[in-house]
């Protein structure tokens, strides 16, 4: 089975968020980029499938600016991916998940594959658009919020659970599908030290932006533009509830939530 896992670098969880001088996006200065969250789960899922289905190969694909995009590909190689493709994009921030989907679709069009795995959404823009858009562009079925994925080789069919509001659904889909994975249902492995060293020397296939842009034509233009990035204003402190008995505290709080804050469910 040929598995493609699409990943992207996101700011490390501990990044102190700050707007860029223009106030239009995150300030990338000093940000530590990492393979994180949903994407990490996606790589783990790809490796679990590969291990369960001997002869399978995992290729990591990422679209974005150097060097951070190459770095997450190396992280995927260190975790156990067999190959990596770097689709270069010149912008500091990839402007649009749809553009990323078009770029990857243009690349995948030339490759044979059975399954594309992506994270349900990325930890930064949280758009969650990439998987569905990619699936549409390569004319494959797609599902999001996927967990506990298995492959029935004789039927060439994937079965999985899918996280939805208030529970989960069981679903299945035949091969050549795009599945967007839920975070943290699996316990992503840590790369082994010798594999990290090996991944530094591995070759990453690079596709120049000019090649991708040529393939996309007018669709290579972003359809959205980030024009603002704001951090929440600090709060001024709590309204403290006076009470004589716990019951009184409970009654007062519930009333405030109903009548003043209007958030009582």
């Amino acid at each position: 089975m040929e598995i493609v896992v699409c990943i992207k670098p996101v700011p490390d969880a501990e990044t102190r968020l700050r707007a860029n001088p223009a106030g239009t996006a995150l300030d990338g200065e000093g940000v530590k980029w990492a393979l994180a969250g949903y994407d990490e789960s996606a790589v783990e899922q790809a490796l679990l499938l590969k291990e369960a289905n001997p002869g399978s190969r995992v290729r990591a694909v990422s679209f974005g600016p150097a060097p951070r995009t190459e770095e997450v590909l190396r992280a995927a190689l260190a975790l156990g991916a067999d190959g990596a493709t770097f689709l270069e994009h010149p912008a500091e921030v990839v402007p649009d998940p749809l553009l990323a989907a078009r770029a990857v679709a243009a690349h995948l069009g030339r490759a044979t594959w059975d399954l594309v795995l992506v994270g349900k959404q990325a930890g930064d823009d949280e758009a969650g658009l990439f998987g569905g858009a990619l699936a549409e562009l390569v004319d494959a079925p797609s599902f999001g919020g996927v967990m506990a994925l298995t492959y029935d080789a004789s039927a060439r069919r994937f079965t999985f659970r899918r996280s939805v509001e208030g529970g989960a659904e069981a679903a299945e889909v035949p091969g050549r599908a795009v599945l967007a994975l839920q975070q943290a249902w699996n316990d992503p492995r840590t790369a082994k030290l010798p594999n990290i060293l090996k991944s530094r020397r591995a070759t990453i296939d690079k596709v120049a932006w000019a090649t991708t842009a040529g393939a996309l034509g007018p669709l290579g233009t972003p359809t959205t533009q980030s024009v603002g990035f704001r951090l929440p204003a600090p709060r001024s402190g709590a309204k403290m509830i006076d009470y004589r008995t716990p019951e009184e505290a409970a009654e007062k709080l519930v009333r405030l939530l109903q009548e003043e804050a209007k958030v009582f469910p």
């Binding site: 998940p97 949280e126 969650g128 562009l137 797609s142 919020g145 899918r162 359809t223 959205t224």
Partner: peptide, 23 residues
Amino acid sequence: GTAAGRDVAGRVAARWEAAAVTG
């Protein structure tokens, strides 16, 4: 933007050649 809604938004945008914004 339910689980199903977020799932379909990207497909619709790609098929309809539209921009898409979630959340």
